[in-house]
Nucleic acid binder design. Structure first.
Lengths: 140, 140
DNA sequence: AACGTTATTGTAAAAACTTGCAACAAGGAA
DNA sequence: TTCCTTGTTGCAAGTTTTTACAATAACGTT
């Protein structure tokens, strides 16, 4: 699969290994849309690689996040969902009706740079869900 | 306990009920510091009110968040911790070691105002966890 | 003070997630 | 190609969090 050739060098060069489990999970993240729960990933990746187990999925997702290949997205309830670390955008969810719109990542760029300089942290870059009240729900 | 008189009116006026479970949990949040896990809260509050059960703790914490009395803070691994909703701040979690620091809410104010004007949403205001790499983990 | 409504809780069981450890296999070296 | 090292995985058992529903109790009303 073409995914492998793209991600493998990044991992191998840091001393990590390329395994079919990791490739299957990357493949799912790449081709199955955004905001996938660990269970989503498990069920889909299992089709590619049936010996896959759930603990491996959890460990791999964490691993991919640590290495910047995936990004965690917070669902409303605190459970983590995952997606590939590209095509960056965020969401605002209406507290009233649950309606959801996207926010360009560029809006957050300057905030990130400001946080980096005041905190000493680098590579701040996160998928974020904000909450607000949409125009319709603002009517009395 | 003095906690009750402070929070009770807020809840009662919205049609919610004052229960010893809720009071015990608020008491814990008030007097046991920040970033408490549901289990921390359970074990401490149980001393005040031994009939307390774990599902009640989870439900009550969520309830307090919905009503603005408590605030969730994400630990590095995605597990939620809770604290009283005062002194608004956010977190940056290090992707490497999980270390965590606070970010002043004021840093985000202008972003929120900008998002409100471009999106039409109002009252945007969220507790957010960002991810980055802390100074120690930036060493090669 | 007793009553009724209905928000809230406890119970029990399931689902989601984590951990420890022995077995395995990726990839460099011989 | 075969051997070794050690990063990864599977297994099994633990812990944490959620769910469904019947029982309970807060509190406005009588």
């Amino acid at each position: 699969m073409s995914c492998a050739s793209e991600y493998a060098p990044q991992l191998r060069s840091r001393g990590y290994r390329i395994t079919p489990q990791r490739m299957a999970i990357l493949h799912v993240l790449r081709h199955s849309g955004e905001h996938l729960s660990p269970r989503d990933v498990y069920q889909k990746a299992k089709k590619d690689f049936p010996r896959l187990t759930e603990p491996t999925v959890y460990r791999t997702l964490e691993f991919l996040v640590r290495n910047g290949l995936a990004r965690p997205a917070q669902a409303g309830n605190g459970r983590l969902r995952y997606q590939l670390a590209t095509g960056d955008h965020h969401h605002i969810v209406c507290r009233g009706c649950g309606d959801e719109i996207e926010v360009e990542h560029s809006l957050l760029e300057s905030l990130y740079r400001k946080m980096e300089s005041t905190s000493g942290y680098k590579r701040i870059d996160s998928h974020v869900t904000f909450f607000g009240v949409c125009p319709e729900c603002q009517q009395p």
